[in-house]
Design a protein around this nucleic acid. Structure first.
Lengths: 156, 156
DNA sequence: TTGACTTCCATAAAATCCCATGATATTCGG
DNA sequence: CCGAATATCATGGGATTTTATGGAAGTCAA
């Protein structure tokens, strides 16, 4: 299985076009997609992105359509209604709606951040801040869980 | 199962290319990989390397994409966003990003250090230092646990 | 027509492929 | 056991392709 890894920073031109990193395009293509699904993150500081498969799995998880259950997670409904599917054009670019870019503070430069089975779009500086926080919190956990820590051999 | 063993020092040419030791390539190939995944070590004095299987196991462990859970384990995010998958070219080489080389102090020469199920990239001199430290620690432990003092095995 | 979007084309930089070379190891015949 | 023929490997340098990015031309609806 191919994963979305690493971080790439690309330019957003004045028309709102951004190149999706070739590697990410390849991952999507390997699943048979020529489009990306975008949805705002809950706290709104970035944009979540994935292939349509992830949305389908998500729908399954929340139970699918059921006219009898009045209160399906309203969260989930919001997700589906906020999500947009963007076609990737012949040059590997997408057109992110201005509104979405603004809500994530993206302007000029856009960071594509791999998360394994999905990725995110960030304003580069904002992502750096977030990453630094995450790294600090995580430093001790990491060695234990991956076996790839700095300290000696993993005692697996 | 094939393991990454021994240490090889190869040259980094001006294009940033390095030959992955043939033995290591064989190990990767035996698992069905024609690429390497690199990720910075916590303290940044080296680069961890492994096959994609390690990343997949990691992703499984933290669970997939779920926009409903606000804060997925942040250390996982840091890993996925820092990791890069490098394809091994027809001549057995990879192109390590300059930034990563610099952060590990690698320049000109690169040591590939086997760790069994993974390996690391080091600046050769820095690795020698680390190795000496590790050996001393190990000797102490051995002395403590077996009663055999420094006269045991030849520690260079 | 105007405005928004899409397709198409141009270009510079970067990544990738391809082949040549020298060094080292391996095989094989005697 | 020795030395020649052969394969494997690391490495250098070019040629080719891919990528990101800018701009122009075409499409369609209001």
């Amino acid at each position: 299985m191919a994963l979305f890894l690493s971080t790439y920073v690309n330019k957003v031109d004045k028309k709102g076009r951004v190149s999706v990193p070739a590697r990410f395009r390849a991952v999507l293509a390997s699943k048979g997609f020529d489009s990306v699904v975008l949805l705002p993150t809950i706290n709104g500081d970035a944009i979540d992105a994935c292939g349509m498969d992830v949305m389908e799995r998500l729908l399954e998880k929340i139970g699918g359509f059921d006219p009898l259950s009045e209160d399906r997670e309203s969260y989930a409904d919001a997700l589906m209604s906020d999500a947009i599917e963007l076609p990737i054009d012949g040059d590997g670019r997408i057109m992110v709606p201005l509104e979405m870019l603004e809500s994530a503070g993206i302007d000029g430069q856009c960071a594509f951040v791999g998360r394994g089975d999905s990725f995110q779009l960030w304003q580069p500086a904002a992502f750096e801040v977030r990453k630094k926080q995450a790294r600090t919190r995580a430093a001790n956990k990491r060695a234990a869980s991956t076996g790839l820590g700095s300290e000696g051999r993993g005692d697996d």
